[in-house]
């Protein structure tokens, strides 16, 4: 579960004020809004990468707004994946476990499981150079999921992908939801993407968030 209550922040002349919304456990919320409406600012603030001036952020009933990004239990997938160029895919996926001092055998096992779920076993020894857009986003998602965070935040993860790849990624997200019951906050510009993936549609307008269930969705059939 992620709950944001009265969140305010200011970046230069831009401000978000009193942003409030909630995504229940296992829920998939899509955050929409015009360019420059502050979607990325909001998601970065939730991940701890941008200071907030007021408000509270809860992840799984734990207040996290004062915690370091490392301690918030939020997996973050930025727009272009932001893969580390000098690391192999395996090193990137294993990094969150290695910094948590997980035993080596368990690191291998958990990284292998996530790689299998996301279909990236064949590219584990490669570096990001030469990976396709879809592969890069799968790796970024694997890296964000491997430490089993309470929430995954995705910032326009599929905006740079061609349509067939994007449709494949939607299938993959739906499959991941069925297998892991992940809670997610997903920023997108695409109404199709929002309708296809979101249980909840959040719309960021004039510094405020309006929340509504996805009208085109039969939630029962997704569960």
């Amino acid at each position: 579960m992620i709950r944001v209550d009265g969140l305010s922040l200011r970046v230069g002349s831009f401000a978000l004020s009193g942003v409030t919304f909630e995504v229940p456990d296992g829920g998939y919320a899509v955050l929409m809004g015009a360019t420059g409406s502050g979607k990325t600012c909001l998601i970065e603030a939730i991940c701890g990468l941008r200071p907030i001036s007021d408000g509270r952020i809860e992840v799984g009933n734990r207040r996290v707004e004062r915690l370091d990004p490392a301690d918030r239990g939020i997996g973050y997938v930025p727009q272009d994946g932001a893969l580390f160029p000098a690391m192999t895919v395996r090193e990137q996926v294993e990094l969150p476990l290695r910094v948590r001092k997980v035993r080596r055998a368990e690191v291998r096992a958990r990284a292998g499981q996530v790689a299998e779920m996301l279909g990236i076993e064949a590219i584990m020894s490669r570096t990001p150079r030469g990976l396709s857009g879809g592969e890069r986003q799968r790796v970024a998602l694997a890296r964000a999921m491997v430490f089993q965070p309470g929430v995954i935040c995705l910032d326009e993860p599929f905006s740079a992908l061609d349509e067939p790849t994007r449709l494949g990624m939607y299938d993959m997200i739906e499959s991941l939801r069925r297998r892991t019951g992940m809670t997610a906050l997903h920023v997108t510009h695409s109404s199709d993407e929002a309708q296809r993936l979101g249980d909840i549609v959040l719309r960021l307008e004039h510094g405020h968030v309006n929340s509504r269930p996805n009208p085109s969705l039969n939630n029962a059939s997704r569960a």
Partner: peptide, 14 residues
């Protein structure tokens, strides 16, 4: 890109 460090921090790095 400083975002590399930001992402690493969300992954559990100090």
């Amino acid at each position: 890109d400083p975002r590399m460090e930001d992402v690493a921090r969300t992954l559990g790095c100090s």
